[in-house]
Structures are given as C-alpha cells and as structure tokens.
C-alpha cells in the first residue's frame, strides 16, 4: 500500500522536471547532451564536497555536539559554494564549446543560444541534485513504515518531496539568471544567486519544522522564477498576450522561417 507514497513523492519531486524534459529537451539531441553534461558537473562538485566532508568528519571530535553542528553548517556552505563554482566553470566551458560548435555548424547562427544553454544546464544541475537529495528518502518511503516512531512529523516524505521539487526548479532559475549575469558581467546578480542558494540550503536547518523551511523556500522560488522569466526575455505584456489568446496576429507578424 505504501507504494502509493513512493509514487506520490516521486511525482511531486520530479513531475515538473519530467514535464520540462519531455516537452523542451527530449526532442533535441544537443540539449540532451548539455543536460547530461550539466548533471555531470554538479556530480563533480558533489564529489569534491564529500571528499572534504569525509576528511573533516574524520578529524572532528565525534562526541562534541557543537562541533558536529558546526561541521554540518560548514559542509552546507562549502557545498553551495562548490556548486556555484562548478556552474561558473560549466558556463566557461560552454562558451568555448559554443565557439567550436559554431565553427562546425553549416549555418551562420549558433545551433543553441546561450539562454537555452543556461536553461538546459540549470535543469541538469536540478535533476542531479534533486535525485541525490531524495533518492534515499524515496527508497525508504516504500515502507512498510512511516516516519514518526521517535516523535517526528509524519509529513516528512511529503515535505521532502516538495522541497526537492523546489530545489530542482530553483536550480533551473539560478542557471538562467547566473548565465545571463555572467554574459552581461553583472556580478551583483551572480552574488544574488549564490546568496539565495545559501539561504535556501540553510533554511533546511529549520527542519523538522517543515512549514518554516518550505514557505520561505517557495517564496524565494517564486521570486527567482519571475526574475528568470524576465531574464529569459519574458515580460508582462507577453504574458498578457499569451493569456488573452491574442497571439495569432502576433505570431503572423513575427513569423519567420527557421
């Protein structure tokens, strides 16, 4: 019966990511390649941070609760910084790769724009980090038990799934904003991405009060979403056009063969 919890949580955590993958990425091989490469870069950052973690746990005093808590905060901050470093490294790599692609390409324009790359690599980061944060939990959600014998909230699985969904989407938005900021050399925007990432990660220290971690995370998600929307070229006007279905004339007016 607890298979329903497993599928429920999987759908919550990965539903949006799967939908995005299906409709926007799966059809174009180049995007799939960059998605996987992004996921790989995130994995490398994880490898480095777990190495540091492994060493620091070994040399720390395991009895001291204060030290262990400090170690945990250190681990989180370090990991976030490493992830953003690797996002930057990936950006640099993509710039180089794009030049190469352009040289190879028969067409004059680039086969994939830097904005598309930002979105695809952000989603790759999100996929991998989402998988790593929730797979352990999903494995145990199959049951037969649920969390709570030591007095924890029984909404643990549900809130974990929602948190993962937020993190996947956030990585996507961060990717878009970060790449754009790098492109335009707006370093304050890069800083904003890093800080919001730190804030979201540190919010999880509020667990097991899930409301106090989930609500601010979703507020940040919403704000980042709007920012990413505008960065990606969206605007309120476009949205209105889209929603009021006045897009046909617009489409005709802007139509050009691709």
């Amino acid at each position: 019966m607890t298979a329903s919890v497993f599928f429920g949580c999987t759908f919550i955590a990965f539903g949006p990511a799967i939908a995005l993958f299906l409709f926007t990425i799966a059809r174009e091989p180049l995007r799939v390649i960059f998605l996987i490469a992004g996921a790989f870069f995130w994995l490398v950052s994880l490898l480095l941070s777990s190495l540091v973690w492994f060493i620091s746990v070994q040399i720390s005093n395991k009895e001291s609760a204060v030290q262990q808590k400090g170690l945990l905060i250190f681990g989180v901050v370090l990991s976030v910084l490493l992830q953003e470093t690797f996002r930057f490294a990936y950006y640099k790599l993509l710039k180089k790769a794009n030049e190469g692609l352009l040289a190879l390409s028969q067409e004059e324009t680039m086969p994939i724009s830097i904005r598309q790359l930002a979105y695809v690599s952000g989603l790759g980061f999100g996929f991998m980090s989402g998988a790593f944060s929730v797979v352990n939990i999903l494995a145990d959600s199959v049951g037969p038990g649920t969390v709570g014998i030591h007095g924890d909230s029984q909404h643990y699985f549900l809130s974990s799934a929602f948190m993962t969904m937020a993190i996947i989407l956030l990585h996507m938005f961060w990717g878009v904003v970060f790449f754009d900021a790098c492109e335009k050399q707006r370093w304050w925007a890069v800083a904003a991405v890093i800080i919001s990432h730190l804030v979201v990660s540190c919010l999880t220290f509020q667990n097991p009060e899930y409301v106090t971690s989930l609500v601010p995370t979703y507020v940040i998600l919403f704000l980042m979403g709007i920012w990413a929307f505008y960065t990606a070229g969206g605007s309120f006007r476009n949205l209105k056009l889209c929603l009021t279905c006045k897009d046909k004339d617009f489409l005709l007016a802007n139509h050009r063969p691709r």
């Binding site: 492994f54 746990v57 681990g75 989180v76 990991s79 944060s133 974990s160 220290f205 509020q206 667990n207």
Partner: peptide
C-alpha cells in the same frame, strides 16, 4: 565513502534531520 556521499546529501538537502 559512498555512504558518506549519501549521508552528505541527506544532510545538505534536509540538513535538519
């Protein structure tokens, strides 16, 4: 070390646990 990675991620995403 594999365990360590797993643990780390239990920590990082849901660190309060």
């Amino acid at each position: 070390s594999v365990n360590c990675v797993k643990l780390l991620y239990a920590f990082l995403s849901f660190a309060g646990v």
